[in-house]
Structure formats: structure tokens, C-alpha cells
Design a protein around this nucleic acid. Structure first.
Length: 764
DNA sequence: TCCGCCTAGGTTTTT
DNA sequence: CCTAGGCGGA
């Protein structure tokens, strides 16, 4: 009997799901159901091959993908069947692994995980410790270098060896001190989670052997986005059984900035000579019109032969639209207007729409347009929930309670709220702790003992009376909370903390009524999340909560059912799909991003980003760019993205702009909030070709010509100069125009060419 | 120590 | 444009 698990899969997919033991590489285009194949494969292994879920490790790209995989398995196999399965991101899997195994390095499992913000603070601390100038040694740059080194498995010593020039020696000494502070803080940063795991594997072969024995089946999604250390993790775990099943798409490799190396997937067969390679080329997501454009862009740059091509059985569908907005506000307005139109004439809901952009900053203009029209929207990313100041403040207390050596949290907590402990006192505390050779928190405890008359090391009692008082009262409040944490559950602890801090009042005072309430609401949301952990044994609640909170990303909490338009970056949109997609800001300097321009490889990565964005669309794809955009407060005339020039004109519609804008007179400032000097004129038929300054190419490019998109859909209200108002009955595209049948209020039905007749769109 | 004014510099993308 | 840090004054 053919397994039910194979039903609804095409032969290629079935082949992948049933692949025999041994290494398997599934090269799969966008929308090819690769994540589904991965999931079905796991179900198949358990159901048909009798594999114990305990022996399976599946690595996904986000926690959200992991959750979805678990849910799907539950649905396929029945409840409870797959609970022994290990699923998660590299980071979460390694984090769990280290809680168990870090003891081999003589470290406590109660380590704190430092996120990027914590990393940066720690680097700043390092620079101050080493008396280095923050101007000459930018903390961000140093943080990036350290992170990069860790992703390449270079520890501080190896880094110092490999870099000989003076500037890098400075970085090396920062790296060294940085690791010292991490160790002293009993903390691991994001990158350590992976690097330390591999180090343990190397140093303790018996530990590795145990995991190799356990995980006889290893599956990895988005393999093209693995970096060196992730590659080594996979390789180490797969070394014995070779049962490694990876899925990915080299055309969607967009994470080289965090060390991802597309060669990992391209050289899979070299790493695993017995590998089977399966190509999934059929696309189940997008229409042919969308796929054609996406393929044109991805192929545009390269001469090399492609590993795979894409095809679909879906209908050709609506042509992809390309449109210019005057500026980002106008661009946003065009999008919102189109969303409103599609909602009227089609059966779309708000969550069918996605606005995808290169940089988070672009979401600002969108936000304003949505607010102005009263459409619900959700912006993914930007300031992440767990990076909000008020949230981090509260988390800092919780982290300090769980791990008193956590240096970054201690410093944060000392400074907020103001309690009379400033940089002077802090520096002195630091000196004193160093003199005693203990971590800062212990030196505080020693200070308390000193107060009670003990003088352990015969050191002089430091600090003036005021500072000492402040420090001791601080210590007392922490110790009080610590006592509470040993009797109350997590929510009880948080309540006590909020009470002690008088946080609600502080927030209201600091940010005013409205924003104060908003931030307080965030705190309550955090408290809500904490509530989900109170079902655990009390001793585990805080640790589990903190580990979880450190590793979630924003897309993880993305709600599909939310009735709102989604605004999201290209990177975060990877793996998602929407019926209608607007790719905005398709301009030189933005996509490709200006920071990528000095290097051919990074420009090609930008091209892949375009490809990823375009292939998110199922039914309709809109490409937009602006005439001008402001950078650093300066208006710059935009140049349309070079990737647009790779699209054959006949694949694209350049709609007659329903709203035509005129350039403002020279040297006229357009006030940000005042009345716009550039008023949208009501439409008067086909617009004059907009002056495109520096078009990419004069012919063979979508930028120079193009027929019209179908904008007069049935139900659209229109006005004609002679016939007056009417409603569109039907329409179809013809050569260079759109043929519409209109039912006029007084003149009955007429058929005409929309642009030729200068037909005007009206609001409903 | 804290507050507020000022200026110089900065914008990719994320687990 | 915006914001984080530096600097002067209370």
C-alpha cells in the first residue's frame, strides 16, 4: 500500500520523502513545497520506517518554522507521537545542548544568553577597560568582527594568530577581553552558542559520539544559509551515519552578512560523495507571470548555467505591474490605493497583502499612509519586542536574579532607575572588585559584610557614605527579590519586581500619559508571556523563560490570522507567501543597497533578494520605485534598480498613472507636514511619460516602454468627458490599452479603449 | 549626579 | 532627519 503520507505529492517530492538511507540533497526552488517535503519525510520515517522520533534532529531556520513543523507532524501522526523529536533553530538546539553539556567545560548551566544589544554593550565595556577610543575603534565594527570570527570558528587566540596587522591586533585584544568578561559574567553570546558546541564536540569525542549515536537522522532546512560553524555542526553529527537530509536553494542565499556560505550547499556532493541529489522545480505558489519576472531577474546577471529552472501548472495570471511613485509617501499611497481597489473588486482580505522592502526604515512612510487611510497593518521587525528599552530593563533584573554574575545586566540595572549610582561610583566599584579579584556582584556582598564589621582582606572601606548607602540599598532590593524568587512563581516574581520598581509610575512620568501606557502595556505583555511558563516546576521557570526570550525572533510571533496588511523586510519575508505582494523601493542604493555596491558578490546577493521577494507572491506582484527619496534629510533623485532592466518589457505592465504628479518648481521645499505643494491632479487620461532621469537603458528594458495594466475592473466607478459617470461591466487588455465596457448612468453601455477615451477612475 | 542643550555622525539585512 | 553621546551648568 502506498503510504497516505505520499498522497498529494508529485513524483519528485515522493522520491525525496522516501529517499533511502544516506546523504540527500534536495535542491528546491521557491514555492516547491520543500518544507513540506522535509516534514513529510520525518512523518514517513516515523510511520513507515519505524524510526524512533527520539533519534531525529530537524533544524529549521526560524522558531516559527519549527513550531509549524511540530504542528503539522501532530496533524499527520496523531497527538503525542512526535514529542520526543528534536526540532529547532541551530541556536535553540545548541542552547538546549549546552544546558546539558557545558559542564564539560567546567561552566554552570545557568548561563545567560547575550543578544546583539548586550554584545554591543559588552564591547563598549571592553573598550573602556582597555582605554581605547570609541571613535577610532567603533564598537559596532568590533562586535561584527568578533561575531564573524566566531562564525568561522576562530577563538580569540586563533584570531590573534591569523591577523597580523596593527588594527587587527587591537580587535584581537578586544576579543580576548570580551571573552574574559563573558566568562566572568557566566554568559554566552549568540555566536558562542554554536561555536562552543563545536568546541565541546572537538574536545570531548565521547560527547560527540553520544550525540551521533542518538541522532541517527539529521534534517536541515535552508541549507544554503548555513555558515561555517553550522556546517561543522552538521558535518560532525553526520560523520558516522551519513544520514543527513538537507534542503535548500542556492538562489535564495541571502545571509552572507552573517557568514552564510553558499558553497556549503553547492559542494554538498563533494562533502558527501554518496549523496543523492533531488531537484524540485515545480512551483506551486506563483502564477507563470510572476515566475517569469522572478526568473528574468535571477538569471539577469549570470552567464553560468542554472542548476534548476522553475515551472508551474498554474495559469499565466495577472501581469506584473511596475510603477513609479513621486516620493516614498506617494509610493505608499499608490500601494494603499491599490490595496483598497483590490479589496473592492476582488475578494481579498487585508492579510492577503504584503509590502516588502529592503530596509526597516522604509516602513515609516507606509505606516503613515496606512494610518491616514485607517487600514490595519502590522510592521514586522524594526524595533523588536524584546529589544524595547522597558522590556530589556525588566529582563535585566530577571537575568541578574538568575545569574548574579551577569555583568551587562548588572550595569543596566545599576543605572536604571536613577538611584544615585553614577559612573564615578560604578568605576570605583569596578576597581574595588578587581582589587579583591572577585566579580562585581560578589564585591557588593563583601561590602555588605564590611558594614557588619568584617574586613576579609584588610582592604580599606571604599566609597563615601552616600554611595555606600546607595549600593547597599540596591543590594538589599536585589536580595529581597531573590528571596521572593525562591518561593513565588515567575509571574509572582515579576509582579513583585514591578511593584518594587514602581515601574508604571516611572514610565508614565518619563514618557507621558500615552506613550507611558503603551510601554506599560508592553510590560504586561511580557508578564503574559511569562505566564506560559508557570506550568513548569518553579525552579525551572525563570531559566526556561529567559532562554526562550533570548532566542525568539519577531517573525516567530507573526500571526497569519491577524486581519492586517503585513509590512516586512525582504530577509524576514523569506519562507513566507502572500496572494498580493508589493516590492517597494526598487532603486539603486536601496536594492541593490549602497553598502553592497563595491563588491560583485554582494550585488549578486541583492539580486537574489529581489528574487526572494518576487517569489513570495502567489497571484499579483507589484514593483514600485520612487522618483526621489531622502537620505540623511537630503532629497536625492532616485535611479530605478538595475535589476528592473533585466526584465523583458513584455512581461511587465506600466499602468497609466491614475494620479499624476507634477514636479515641484525648482528649489521649492516640500514641507513635511504642511499642505503639499505638489497636489495630485485628477487624472486626465494617459499621463505624459514621466521624465525618468537616467533610465537604465533606452530599449529592451521595462523602464522605457510597456503596455497598460488592467486597472478598470468590473465595479469600478468611472467618468467620461462626454458620457458622464458610469460603472465598468467588463474589461480586457488589448495591445497598448485596456478595452472596457461601461454602463453609463444616462447613456447606457458603451465599449471603449480606456486610455484613448481618457476614462477617469472615481472613488466608489 | 542629573538634566538639557548641542553636534557630529550614521542606515542593510538577523539568530 | 534622527539619536546617541559629550559637555556645561545646577
Amino acid at each position: 500500500m502506498i503510504s497516505e503520507l505520499l498522497q498529494g505529492l508529485n513524483p519528485k517530492q515522493q522520491e525525496a520523502v522516501q529517499a533511502v538511507k544516506g546523504p540527500v540533497l534536495v535542491l528546491a526552488g521557491p514555492g516547491s513545497g520543500k518544507t513540506r517535503v522535509l516534514t513529510q519525510r520525518i512523518a514517513y520515517l516515523i510511520e513507515e520506517e519505524g524510526v524512533d522520533p527520539f533519534n531525529i534532529l530537524a533544524v529549521t531556520f526560524t522558531n516559527k518554522a519549527a513550531q509549524e513543523m511540530k504542528d503539522r507532524l501532530e496533524a499527520l501522526l496523531g497527538p503525542g507521537r512526535a514529542t520526543a523529536l528534536t526540532v529547532g533553530t541551530f541556536h535553540s538546539v545548541c542552547s538546549r545542548f549546552l544546558r546539558r553539556e557545558i559542564k564539560h567545560l567546567g561552566r554552570s548551566p545557568d548561563f545567560t544568553i547575550y543578544d546583539s544589544d548586550d554584545q554591543l554593550r559588552l564591547v563598549k565595556r571592553v573598550l573602556r577597560d582597555l582605554n581605547l577610543d570609541e571613535k577610532q575603534n567603533l564598537p559596532r565594527t568590533i562586535q561584527n568582527k568578533i561575531s564573524k570570527a566566531k562564525n568561522e570558528m576562530l577563538d580569540a587566540a586563533k584570531f590573534a594568530q591569523s591577523k597580523q596587522n596593527f588594527a587587527e591586533q587591537i580587535t584581537a585584544s578586544c576579543y580576548e577581553r570580551y571573552q574574559e568578561l563573558l566568562l566572568e559574567s557566566n554568559a554566552l553570546d549568540f555566536d558562542d552558542l554554536l561555536m562552543t558546541t563545536v568546541q565541546i564536540f572537538r574536545q570531548f569525542p565521547e560527547v560527540l559520539a553520544a550525540y551521533q549515536q542518538r541522532y541517527t537522522y539529521l534534517l536541515v532546512d535552508e541549507y544554503q544559509d548555513t555558515n561555517r560553524v553550522q556546517y561543522l555542526l552538521v558535518k560532525n553529527l553526520a560523520a558516522q551515519g551519513q544520514n543527513v537530509f538537507v534542503v535548500g536553494d542556492n538562489d535564495q542565499s541571502v545571509y552572507s552578512f552573517r557568514g552564510a556560505d553558499v558553497r556549503n550547499i553547492l559542494q554538498f556532493e563533494r562533502d558527501y560523495p554518496t549523496a543523492q541529489v533531488i531537484l524540485l522545480e515545480q512551483n506551486y505558489r506563483s502564477t507563470q507571470a510572476i515566475l517569469d519576472v522572478a526568473q528574468a531577474v535571477i538569471k539577469g546577471g549570470k552567464k553560468q548555467k542554472y542548476l534548476k529552472s522553475l515551472w508551474t501548472e498554474k495559469r499565466v495570471g495577472v501581469k506584473v505591474s511596475l510603477q513609479e511613485g513621486y516620493d516614498p509617501d506617494d509610493e505608499a499611497r499608490l500601494v494603499v490605493t491599490e490595496i483598497e481597489r483590490l479589496r473592492r473588486v476582488g475578494s481579498y482580505q487585508l492579510n492577503d497583502f504584503a509590502l516588502i522592502y529592503r530596509t526597516n526604515a522604509q516602513s515609516r512612510a507606509l505606516e503613515e499612509a496606512f494610518l491616514a487611510r485607517g487600514l490595519r497593518y502590522q510592521i514586522i521587525g524594526g524595533i523588536r519586542f524584546y529589544e524595547r528599552k522597558e522590556i530589556k530593563d525588566v529582563l535585566a533584573y530577571l537575568r541578574l536574579l538568575h545569574n548574579p554574575f551577569d555583568r551587562v545586566s548588572l550595569e543596566r540595572v545599576l543605572a536604571t532607575p536613577g538611584r544615585g549610582i553614577g559612573s564615578q561610583t560604578e568605576a570605583e566599584l569596578q576597581r574595588w572588585a578587581t582589587a579583591m579579584g572577585v566579580p562585581i556582584y560578589q564585591s557588593l556582598l563583601a561590602l555588605a559584610n564590611l558594614e557588619q564589621g568584617e574586613t576579609p582582606l584588610g582592604l580599606q572601606v571604599p566609597f563615601n557614605t552616600r554611595a555606600r548607602k546607595a549600593l547597599l540599598s540596591f543590594l538589599k532590593s536585589i536580595e529581597d527579590l531573590r528571596a521572593i524568587s525562591t518561593t513565588f512563581d515567575l509571574v509572582g516574581l515579576i509582579d513583585a519586581l514591578l511593584e518594587q520598581l514602581k515601574l508604571q509610575e516611572i514610565l508614565r512620568k518619563e514618557y507621558g500619559q500615552d506613550e507611558g501606557e503603551e510601554r506599560w502595556a508592553n510590560i504586561l505583555e511580557l508578564r503574559n508571556v511569562a505566564g506560559e511558563f508557570t506550568c513548569l516546576p518553579r525552579e525551572q521557570q525563570l531559566a526556561t523563560f529567559l532562554a526562550e526570550v533570548a532566542l525568539v525572533s519577531d517573525t516567530d510571533s507573526l500571526k497569519d490570522q491577524a486581519e492586517a496588511v503585513t509590512c516586512i523586510t525582504l530577509h524576514q519575508a523569506k519562507g513566507l507567501e502572500y496572494p498580493v505582494v508589493f516590492l517597494i523601493g526598487l532603486e539603486e542604493g536601496l536594492l541593490p543597497h549602497s553598502r553592497s555596491l563595491d563588491n560583485q558578490d554582494t550585488i549578486e546577493e541583492e539580486r537574489r533578494l529581489f528574487y526572494v521577494g518576487a517569489t513570495r507572491a502567489k497571484e499579483r506582484l507589484y514593483l514600485l520605485y520612487t522618483f526621489r527619496r531622502s537620505f540623511y534629510g537630503q532629497w536625492i533623485t532616485s535611479t530605478p534598480s538595475r535589476f528592473l532592466a533585466d526584465i523583458p518589457p513584455d512581461l511587465i505592465n506600466r499602468p497609466a498613472q491614475p494620479k499624476k504628479l507634477v514636479q515641484p518648481p525648482e528649489n521649492t521645499l516640500v514641507p513635511r507636514n504642511g499642505p503639499r505643494l505638489v497636489a495630485p491632479l485628477s487624472n486626465q487620461g494617459p499621463s505624459e511619460p514621466r521624465r525618468l532621469n537616467s533610465p537604465i537603458s533606452s530599449k529592451g528594458s521595462v523602464l522605457s516602454s510597456g503596455p497598460t495594466e488592467r486597472i478598470f475592473l468590473p465595479g469600478q466607478r468611472v467618468r467620461h468627458q462626454r458620457f458622464g459617470e458610469g460603472v465598468v461591466v467588463s474589461s480586457k487588455l488589448v495591445e497598448d490599452d485596456e478595452e472596457v465596457t461601461v454602463d453609463f448612468l444616462f447613456k447606457g453601455q458603451k465599449r471603449m479603449l480606456a486610455n484613448l477615451a481618457k476614462l477617469e477612475q472615481l472613488e466608489p
